[in-house]
């Protein structure tokens, strides 16, 4: 399947209003690790993480990922990384990420990713957290990301693919990252 069919310079789904966020630690054990109150991170303490996945469009019309919310961070945006003559550039996509009809788009290191800003707790390898993706046509779909340390899509342990309308989201993962206090 073709992965990078989207013209550069799309999207962004600035997602706010995560007031009712649940701690990522809820998936695992330690309740005290619940990231509770570290809302709008200050510019200095801002921590970031990235989530990756494969989004397939099984329908006849293009769809578009227009927003992401996650319990793991205050804000989630869709970004694109590109290598411009050896200088790596990263951009929020302004119009969302198009998922062409009958195609599949992979979000992966060095390409598209969901950038999570203001982590509510460390993204610890072995744990999981949920993201809700909003598609223009398919609507909302909630998926579970598996956290790993490293740059490779984990070989196992990821949640089953999730369907919403013509959209199928699979292989959702994230790299471990620290929530910063400085």
């Amino acid at each position: 399947m073709n992965m990078r069919t989207i013209p550069a310079g799309l999207l962004i789904a600035l997602v706010v209003g995560l007031s009712s966020v649940i701690g990522i630690a809820a998936h695992d054990s330690t309740p005290e690790a619940s990231p509770a109150a570290s809302p709008a991170a200050s510019p200095v303490a801002m921590s970031t993480g990235a989530a990756f996945m494969t989004i397939a469009n099984n329908g006849d019309t293009a769809d578009r990922l227009i927003a992401v919310e996650t319990e793991a961070a205050g804000v989630a945006e869709i970004h694109e990384v590109a290598d411009v003559s050896g200088v790596m550039t990263m951009r929020p996509l302004d119009d969302g990420l198009e998922i062409p009809a009958g195609e599949s788009v992979e979000l992966m290191p060095g390409g598209y990713h969901v950038m999570m800003i203001g982590l509510k707790g460390d993204l610890m390898p072995g744990e999981t957290f949920d993201l809700t993706l909003t598609f223009e046509h398919a609507g909302d779909v909630t998926v579970t990301a598996r956290i790993v340390m490293g740059n490779e899509k984990p070989a196992e342990g990821m949640a089953e693919p999730v369907n919403a309308g013509d959209i199928t989201v699979s292989d959702v993962w994230s790299r471990g990252a620290p929530a910063m206090s400085h």
Partner: peptide, 22 residues
């Protein structure tokens, strides 16, 4: 090394830095 700050007022990041990645 080239590193350029790029402001994104609409993004929660505020700004990002394009940089040489060697």
């Amino acid at each position: 090394v080239v590193a350029t700050r790029v402001d994104y007022p609409d993004s929660a990041t505020g700004y990002l830095v394009d940089h040489t990645s060697l």
